[in-house]
């Protein structure tokens, strides 16, 4: 079933991809044009998606329950880290992210917080000081 659903989604993407390509106009002097390759990709991709719909593999074992919640939590955490890295500053953001990730990976609060503290400092020294890749150290409102 999963394969069929994915096949349908990919088929829709391939069709939309091909139709969009039709809008790209070929310019004078270019024998290929911007639309040709996308068109050449869209057709076989659509056919392969059809094959997936018609001959699906057995379903994979999707995770449910707590592990799935863990994954979702981790995803939210990563998105949040990306969003707030510059606002919170590297040290604070990394400390929070590593602590929470450690907790998600079934460590205790104390150990995760310790690893968060150590890792944020070590990584800052490593990247910013030793490798010379500037990172935003402090929260925006303090800098």
């Amino acid at each position: 079933m999963t394969d069929r659903i994915v096949g349908c989604i990919l088929l829709a993407i391939a069709i939309a991809y091909g139709i969009t390509a039709g809008d790209y106009e070929a310019r004078f002097g270019d024998p290929l044009g911007p639309a040709a390759l996308p068109m050449m990709l869209a057709v076989p991709a659509a056919l392969l998606s059809l094959a997936l719909i018609l001959k699906p593999d057995p379903d994979p074992a999707w995770v449910t329950g707590r592990p799935m919640l863990r994954q979702l939590a981790a995803l939210v955490l990563l998105l949040g880290y990306a969003q707030f890295l510059e606002t919170l500053g590297f040290l604070l953001a990394t400390f929070i992210a590593v602590t929470l990730l450690g907790k998600l990976l079934r460590s205790t609060w104390l150990l995760s917080a310790a690893s968060g503290a150590v890792m944020s400092v070590v990584l800052f020294v490593l990247f910013d000081q030793l490798l010379g890749l500037p990172l935003p150290l402090l929260p925006e409102f303090m800098g």
């Binding site: 890295l85 590593v98 079934r106 150990l111 995760s112």
Partner: peptide
């Protein structure tokens, strides 16, 4: 729980 966050952070950085 040390390794995974470390990998994630190095990827991000």
């Amino acid at each position: 729980w040390i390794l995974m966050p470390f990998v994630v952070m190095v990827s991000f950085l």
